[in-house]
Every structure is written in structure tokens, then in C-alpha cells.
Simulated scan of single mutants.
Amino acid sequence: MSQPSREHRKGPVQLRGAQIPDTTTDERLLSDSDNAEWVHSDPWRVMRIQAEFVEGFGALAELGPAISVFGSARFKEGEAEYALGERVAAGLVTAGFAVITGGGPGVMEAANKGAHEAGGTSVGLGIELPFEQGMNQYVDLGVNFRYFFARKTMFVKYANGFVVLPGGFGTFDELFEALTLVQTSKVRRFPVVLVGVDYWSGLLDWLRDSVLARGAISPPDLDLIKLTDDPDEAVRLVVEGVRDLHASEEAARAEVEAAAAAHNGT
């Protein structure tokens, strides 16, 4: 009859047999070995991920009303998309919002510039990439991230709405992340405005004629998206969307309070 395997506990993890390490956690911690491979292990990555959330929450907790503005890093100053980014951001600041971007060049820089020069709060949430971009010079409050998912959480958590200018895969990722969270009720509904009719119409046609037609989404899902060419209208649509959301939340809160008061009075 075989003997039960020796057991070893490492925090909440229980190990047996060949899984038991030859050295203790303390021994490895206090070792003077110059092997730094441990900083790339999965448990250490968890700590880094936690640190990114803590740093992001701490930096943005007192930001106030804000709108996330997305768009390609590849459009240069002097191009129409860059000018759109500046105008949208300046309008959002005038309407009382901070502006959050990915902190990089192109449309992100344009939006940060528009917010900065309009006297508002210009926020950049950078990302570590193999081709290092760095934070653009118009960012007043910047946070750098290693992980896309931590960064995207900040875009959603601290924004009251999204304005999406022409962009590529990164822009699509951020757009559909937001739409998925709203569609599945993971977050409250907030306005999503696409700027650039020619650029975005093909995508919206495909969503309607293929995705909706095959039943993969529902008609109300398309109502989550507004489309315009006018930066001033984009700002108006976002402001109205935020205002309508607040009004519906206040109405729902008042209804709950009235029901509670009626119940307590019986």
C-alpha cells in the first residue's frame, strides 16, 4: 500500500510530490543570486497588475466628469483628423469635461492639445509597446500601463462617454469594448459618438446589413452609436447623452425612494 504524498503549503497553494520546491519562499527571497528571472513569473505579474490598477485608481479618482477620445496614432498635425481631435476636445472642455486619451501621437495628441490649450484637464493613459511612443507633450496627467486590460478599465471607469475618431485596430478594440460592456449591462449606458461619416459608414452598414440581419445583435444595439461629421455636434450628442443618463438615474432613484416611503407609511 502506497504511503500518502508529503504535503507542502505555499500561502493558499497546497503542493504534493514532485511539485514541492527544494527551497522555501524566504530562502529564494533572501538569496543573493543575480538571476532576475523571478520578476517575470506569473505570480509576480499579478502584483504588477494589482499595482497598475492601484496607481490608475489613485491618479484618476478625483478627475471629475470626463470623456474618453479615441483615434489613430498615425494621423499627423495638418491632417483633417488631427484638427477634428483638437476641436472635439476643446468643445468638451468648454462643456465642463476633462479629456482622456491614450496619451500617444496622432489623434490622441490632437485631443490632448485641444484640451490643454482650452484650459481643461488633459489626461493620457499610455501603454508600453515594442515600438515605444511615449506620452505626448500636451498631457497634464499621465499614467503609463503595461497591460491593455488595466488601461481599458480606466478608459471606461473614469469616462462619462466616448468620442471615437478615425482609427485602426486599437481604436476598434476600445470602441467594441465599450459597446460590449454597455450591451451586456456590465456598465451603465453612456453615449458613444463616432466622428467621420465617410470613415465609419461602411462599418455601420455591415453591422446593420450583416450582423443585425443574421440576428447576432438586436436593433437597440445599433442605437448605442451616434454618427456625425461635425465636431460641435459630437460634443452636443455626448453632453445630451450624459445629461439624459443623469436624468434617468435621478428619476429611478426618486421612484425607489417614493416606493420605500410608501412602504414605510403603510
Rank of each mutant, 00 (worst) to 15 (best):
A115L: 09
S210H: 09
G168K: 03
W206Q: 05
M1K: 12
T25L: 15
P166R: 02
F70H: 02
Y199N: 01
L181Q: 05
A89M: 05
D42T: 12
E117S: 13
G196S: 03
D232R: 06
R253V: 11
F131H: 13
E55S: 12
D173S: 10
D232C: 04
T171A: 03
T184E: 03
A115Q: 10
L245E: 14
E250W: 11
L204F: 04
V193T: 01
V123N: 02
A258I: 11
V242Q: 04
G161E: 01
Q14I: 13
D205K: 12
G58F: 07
A259N: 15
L179P: 05
P130V: 13
D173P: 02
E81H: 08
A90N: 01
S41K: 10
I67F: 00
E177S: 06
L29T: 14
R48S: 09
Y138N: 04
E257S: 12
R189Y: 01
V143H: 10
S68D: 00
L60T: 09
L141T: 15
T171V: 03
G114R: 10
K76A: 09
Q133D: 04
A234D: 08
D140Y: 10
D232K: 09
P231T: 07
V195Q: 00
F57V: 15
G161C: 03
L224F: 12
L125V: 05
H263W: 11
V238D: 04
R188M: 05
D230K: 05
L245R: 15
A159N: 08
L207Y: 03
Y147W: 12
Q137M: 00
E37L: 13
E81L: 02
T24R: 13
A59F: 10
L125R: 12
D34G: 15
A118V: 09
A36L: 14
E55W: 09
I49Y: 08
L141E: 06
D221W: 08
G85K: 01
K226N: 06
G114Y: 07
T266S: 14
A90Y: 08
Q3Y: 09
K113D: 04
A262W: 06
A115I: 07
N136F: 04
L30R: 13
Q183E: 05
A251N: 12
E257R: 14
E55L: 12
E117P: 06
G91Y: 07
E249W: 12
L63D: 00
L181F: 03
A18I: 08
L224I: 04
V139N: 02
A118I: 07
V69I: 03
D232V: 09
E27R: 13
D229W: 03
G85H: 02
A234S: 06
G134N: 10
E174C: 11
G241K: 01
E27S: 09
F148I: 07
T180V: 04
F75P: 01
L222S: 08
R16V: 15
N136C: 02
G170N: 08
